[in-house]
Nucleic acid binder design. Structure first.
Length: 593
RNA sequence: GGCGGUAUAGCUCAGUUGGUUAGAGCGUGGGAAUCAUAAUCCUAAAGUCGCAAGUUCAAGUCUUGCUAUCGCUACCA
């Protein structure tokens, strides 16, 4: 499952090689933090994207992990009477547990304290140092003796050159440090970002980064001199044991160190201009606070190393809670336990759906409000896809004995079609004729359209269009059922020559469209969609009982109307319990305790 | 302080190079239907497009000022 590194690719389906590989990362999370909605959200977006790309048939590698080399980790460990490593391990496990709970399908979980990371990160830095791209220089800054740390120029100025914490005067100090020649890459960065070779999303963030680059780039310090009594924690500057590499610069390397192995290099290949293989896509997802490192410093480092640069750096905004910014002082962080409580009441897939569709993917923050959660849950899931599958399953059980009788082309209201004419006649006979007898439904074309939309949006790392396309299909089925009223026809079968055939045709089209909708919804709701496939005996997954098992074919094939994986005559359809039970808006929010 | 973004129906947001009655989803009102988780379908109402001035035959869409709000301001993760 999720936390098991899938290091071997032997289970990769054959079709996976038809497309370029796809590498998706989240930041590695600071191990002193407790997993909260922020960590879960970024990783969920990555998971939905990874699942969607796998569904398209791509060979995906999805990485997350923990950042463990901060000095504060040593302190926190000491405060808790543990060794830094034991403390880090304990907290890394909390992230792993949280992510397992969220149903994430990451292929690996990297910890920066692992040798595989440290040795390679160290090698990259050595390479840069040997090339004089990392050089020894002098850092002049404002030092806060009471806190034993430097403060930034701006912070120093804002606080009138006094310690922001204690108010004692700051000292101007000069220190010997190593620097990275970021200033060398100003022109290159501008060109690379402007050309779209490096996509920074959303657009607003790209402009922010470009604006800041335009103000000029300075070389950045990447190390600090090791002082007497410093803990041995982190990566030492190659060939200079008196300096330690700053955590963040070593941490960035995790994206490359983890796939810098023979079997994984396909996700991050060193490419030449005439490379015939399709270029893999490398997508870094993160929250907006760490965009600068990922959009500027990291690509420049990679460029200096002669490595491929990421194709997309996506920085989403923050969640706020019930209209208020989450902060430690307010103590209103939505922690993993709150999400667990929501999942226990509404289903994990409902939590995933809400976060994905209502989240701050754009440049502005989004609100996690209980009332809103229930509204979206009822509108999209209980009344939407949940109810639609219930009513269709129910009618197939009731009118067709729980078995698909025939297929059809999914087009209704057109000249040659008899099924909808029969259904309209039945409504008229029942004294409830349709308002508009010229209405047409082309469910098959709608499905094909939805598929195109999904593929186009995923090429731009957009996950929501795929989901809304799936939801739109389910909505169309609802409208079709209301119009065709198969339940009315079912009561008057003997009045019409082809009544039974018309009924079976209408129900087939409804169910087949919902099956295709469920495929598009699956990246966000893998568990309940797999449950639906079990009830409907659809063989989409290699292991029908394991929602995390690979798909048996790419989406294009799976979603083919009445195709090899479509519903077939004789296929058993079971109704089962509601996938998403309607929620009571009056009920108080689930509590973590 | 500097640079930049945003202000459009109750809520969340779309609104292309300025051009007829400003759109969607959710929520709300009315009607229909009853297969379904009282779900669904049809339909309606609701906006002086932050405020003020300007450019123009014509501005939500351009300019200026004001107000509110948000982000970035680099080496803590």
């Amino acid at each position: 499952m999720t936390q098991t590194p899938a290091t071997d690719q032997t289970n990769t389906p054959a079709h996976a090689n038809d497309h370029a590989p796809c590498y998706i990362t989240t930041p590695i999370y600071y191990v002193n933090d407790r997993p909260h909605i922020g960590h879960c959200y970024t990783t969920l977006v990555a998971d939905v994207l990874a699942r969607a790309q796998r569904l398209l048939g791509r060979d995906v590698f999805f990485l997350t992990g923990t950042d463990e080399h901060a000095e504060k980790v040593v302190k926190a460990a000491a405060d808790n009477g543990m060794s830094p490593m034991d403390w880090a391990t304990k907290n890394a496990e909390r992230f792993k547990d949280a992510f397992t709970f969220m149903g994430f399908s990451n292929d690996d979980f990297v910890r920066t304290t692992e040798d595989r990371h440290k040795t390679r990160a160290s090698a990259y830095i050595k390479k840069l140092k040997d090339a004089d791209i990392i050089y020894k220089g002098e850092y002049k800054g404002w030092y806060d003796p009471s806190q034993e740390e430097y403060v930034t120029e701006t912070t120093a100025k804002e606080n009138d050159f006094k310690s922001p914490v204690t108010g004692k005067p700051l000292e101007e100090r000069t220190e010997e440090n190593y620097f990275f020649r970021l200033s060398n890459y100003e022109t290159w960065l501008k060109a690379t970002i402007n050309s779209g070779e490096l996509k920074i999303l959303p657009e607003a963030r790209k402009n922010e980064v470009l604006g800041r680059i335009a103000q000029g780039l300075n070389d950045v310090p990447v190390s600090r001199r090791i002082k007497q009594g410093d803990p041995d924690w982190g990566v030492v500057m190659p060939d200079d044991p008196e300096h330690r590499v700053y955590v963040w610069i070593e941490a960035l390397c995790n994206y490359l160190t983890t796939v810098d192995t023979e079997d994984r290099r396909k996700y991050w290949p060193q490419r030449s201009a005439d490379d015939a293989h399709p270029a893999p896509t490398i997508t870094h997802l993160m929250a907006k606070d760490i965009l600068w490192f990922h959009a500027v410093i990291w690509p420049a480092m990679l460029h200096a190393l002669g490595e491929t640069i990421p194709s997309t750096v996506y920085a989403h905004a923050y969640w706020i809670a019930e209209g208020r910014k989450m902060s430690k002082s307010l103590g209103n962080f939505i922690e993993i336990d709150t999400l667990r409580a929501y999942a226990a009441r509404y289903h994990l897939d409902a939590v995933r759906w809400f976060l994905t569709t209502q989240g701050p993917l754009g440049p502005t923050d989004a609100d996690f409000a209980h009332a809103r959660f229930v509204e979206v849950y009822n509108a999209d899931l209980a009344n939407g896809i949940g109810n639609a599958t219930s009513r269709v399953s129910n009618m197939i059980e009731k009118y067709l004995g729980g078995e698909i009788e025939r297929t059809c082309d999914g087009r209704f209201g057109f000249e040659e079609g008899v099924a909808l004419q029969t259904a309209r006649a039945a409504r008229a006979a029942a004294g409830n004729p349709v308002d508009d007898d010229s209405r047409v439904f082309d469910l098959r074309s709608s499905c094909e359209e939805a598929l195109r939309k999904a593929e186009a949006s995923l090429a731009n790392d957009c996950i929501t269009d795929t989901l809304t396309a799936g939801k739109a299909l389910s909505d169309e089925v609802d409208a079709f059922i209301a119009y065709a009223a198969p339940f009315t026809l079912a009561k008057r079968l003997d009045e019409f020559e082809h009544g039974q055939r018309a009924l079976a045709t209408i129900l087939y089209a409804s169910a087949e469209a919902l099956r295709i909708a469920s495929l598009l919804l699956a990246p966000a709701m893998p568990f309940q969609m797999a449950e639906l496939w079990r009830r409907w005996n659809c063989n989409h997954l290699t292991l029908p009982d394991d929602p995390n098992s690979p798909f048996v074919a790419p989406l294009e094939h799976l979603a083919h109307w009445a195709g090899d994986f479509g519903l077939k005559p004789g296929q058993r359809i079971a109704k089962g319990d509601p996938l998403f039970m309607r929620a009571d808006p009056a009920e108080p929010a689930p509590s973590a305790n």
